[in-house]
Every structure is written in C-alpha cells, then in structure tokens.
Amino acid sequence: MSDVTSPAVVDDKTNIRTSEATADVLELLVKQGHFVTQLGAFQAAAMLALRKELPAVDIPSAGGLNYNQGSFKQVIDFLTWYVPTPTPARLLEQLGNAGAAYIGEKVRSGGYTLTEIFEIAQPDATA
C-alpha cells in the first residue's frame, strides 16, 4: 500500500454487482434512515470490509443489484491509489458484498445506530 503511483487500470469490471442478500441489507439501511441511497450504503459497507480486511464472498451470477462502475468514481479512484490495485471496480464489488454480509445480521434485527452497525468508535477512543 506504500506505492502511491496509481497502477494503470486494466481489464477491470464495467459493472458492479451485489448479491440478493447484499441488496436486502442495502435496502434496509436506507429504510432505517442511515443512508439516502443504496449506493451510498454499498460504499460504506465496502469501506468497513477494507478496514476489517474481510475475505471476499461469493456473488451468485443472478439476482441482486447491478451498478455501473461510473457511479462509484470517487471510491474507485480512492481504491486505485490507496490499495493500490489495477482492478478497483472488481475490488469494490468484493469489498461491498463482504461488508454487507458482515453487517447483515445487525441490520436485519434493527434497532442499531449507524456507528454501532459499522463499529465506528468515538474519536477519543480512536485517537
């Protein structure tokens, strides 16, 4: 991760897919008022997975949501230089689905706050 030079993006995905389970979690996150859009919720889930270094999960070929990678320009740019990776869209897909699977149980049971779902500590504790 120390190499800041962004690698040339090669052979990356043009669409980012979610599993059906991920789509349900994203829909609940919006319904519970934690995000404005499912896309925003997916990005946050991906960032959680990045932080937790969660392993990739399988994404069935059918069902779920399908986003154009252009919708995630900011995150894809970020992953390109931060990780770094030549296939940021593929990585985002893996991270987003892994993050959604991780938080799925809490979201489905309801009653959790945003910081509880994403296990965000108060600043003093992180400092």
Binding site: F35, M47, Q74
Partner: peptide, 15 residues
C-alpha cells in the same frame, strides 16, 4: 444523518 453518512462514504474506514 443519512446525508452525512452518504457524503462521507469513507467513515467506516476513518480509523
């Protein structure tokens, strides 16, 4: 709250 979390998509990895 939803707008804040949407805008700051990286918050989950802020630490």
């Amino acid at each position: 709250l939803a707008r804040e979390s949407e805008k700051n998509w990286w918050l989950a990895a802020a630490g």
